[in-house]
Write a protein that binds this DNA or RNA. Structure first.
Lengths: 260, 260
DNA sequence: CAAAGTATGTACGCTACCGAACATAAAACC
DNA sequence: GGTTTTATGTTCGGTAGCGTACATACTTTG
């Protein structure tokens, strides 16, 4: 809620862009507030913007005919929402929901597409390369979710969920109800209550009515399944293959200038 | 096994290419036999070729530390193996295995990358657009697998598996053991035996030692979960957005000329 | 402060699936 | 032709998660 400091380079993908592209996009990046529960797009919707989260977290949720659902990917400041825009196939059969309030920068669809195409030929460097590499990380994440759904217990999956969330948050406190977690893990609310109860009893977390505070991160890491590490390290591997342009950030504080 | 008629345009992606690109790739497309069980790449391997199946079927399998596994995608003549090549992030943490013998055309990695980059700017038409749209279909398929793993019974999943396989085969007979199916569904072999037993008892399939023949496809469709239809129609939607170049096929029979 | 709403706790029977062990029969091998 | 290997059938106890129902307690609202 505090309007302290916002900058597009807080998003890893934007931060990974070469200077010229970053500058070109800057004037078109619009800072938007992302309240909990906001739906960025619904299954089948046409997308009008690409969203680059900085402090919020977005879930890609799949909702079935009977209402049952499952999270198929998490996107924080390490990614973006709207890959369908440049993949060229129109809408995707899922839903994107803000599951942790915060901010994001958004870019109008035609601009994203234009810049994506423009940087097409040059391997790796530009937006084109950055987004494709990110898409690959996303694919890995989804594959891991599929496997985790099949083979691991609710307890393990809750640990995975918490850790993936923590990675995308500045604090160690997650604001969310067990009901919502359940809908993302695709299990009953009671199952989450029970699993969370165990974690609390063992002193790894404390929680009450919509707030979970993690006390012992290493403890969670000790209980989580391998899936967490795979997603975590794959995503940082694919990002780190580009030199970060973090020097830019303090030097020009470009967004502040562009916004007012 | 009969070396009747082979043509790159039997693969939907190749068939969707504009004439000039198709012609350019033709001399470099190498017809290869794909025996059951052949591993195209292992988790972490560097890829040397992209494979475009015509009559074979390939599974993308995720294998976990303890040996448990799950299929995360099926690829037949509707797709290709090796998206990591043009996504730019190097290897993928999974395994690709031939699960139904047949043929495929392959293309050396540098050539694929070159052509992909070359067709970068032009929206939709070229290899670039075709492969990105295919990747989106693949993402949809994986998401659906994740959800199916979570919510649907072994019975339903077996039906889904059979139907997705049939869609990629010329006949109604699948050559595979229940043991292998089990490893793809990520369940016990006994679970598959039981589910297959039911289907046989109800006259939908007959099978014996590594061969399953489907007698009543509508019957399977009546029992399958919604997941099948989603994958099926999404994949044809994303392909059909490009006019097929099937006229070319009979006109020039290009491969036959190129091969001998 | 009372009432309604929301988040979490608990209990119970039920089912699908697991893990393991073993039986049978068709194929492959020598 | 007999032995080994491989694919499938069957059983049985154990359990994780489901569906349901209801209890409790904190929070918001009037």
């Amino acid at each position: 809620m505090t309007a302290d400091y916002h900058n597009p380079s807080q998003n890893s993908l934007l931060n990974a862009l070469p200077v010229d592209e970053y500058q070109r996009l800057l004037p078109h990046l619009e800072l938007v507030q992302m309240p909990l529960g906001k739906v960025l797009y619904e299954s089948g919707d046409e997308l009008h913007h690409a969203y680059f989260p900085t402090t919020c977290i977005v879930s890609k949720l799949y909702v079935m005919e009977n209402g049952a659902s499952a999270e198929i990917a998490v996107v924080g400041n390490d990614g973006m929402i709207g890959i369908a825009l440049f993949m060229g196939g129109g809408s995707m059969p899922n839903r994107a929901v803000v599951r942790s309030a915060g901010y994001a920068y958004r870019l109008r669809a035609p601009l994203l597409i234009q810049e994506f195409d423009r940087s097409g030929g040059r391997r790796s460097g530009g937006l084109h390369g950055v987004l494709l590499r990110y898409t690959q990380a996303l694919i890995t994440q989804m594959a891991q979710m599929a496997v985790c759904n099949r083979h691991h217990s609710v307890n393990q999956q809750l640990c995975r969920w918490l850790l993936l969330t923590l990675d995308r948050l500045p604090s160690n406190e997650v604001s969310i109800t067990q009901e919502l977690i359940a809908s993302m893990l695709g299990v009953r609310r009671e199952g989450v209550t029970e699993a969370a109860g165990k974690l609390q009893k063992d002193g790894l977390i404390v929680y009450s009515r919509g707030h979970i505070r993690v006390l012992d991160r290493p403890g969670l890491e000790a209980r989580v399944c391998e899936c967490y590490q795979v997603v975590h390290s794959e995503s940082s591997r694919l990002l780190s293959s580009v030199p970060p342009a973090s020097a830019r950030r303090t030097a020009m504080t470009p967004h502040l200038r562009a916004v007012r």
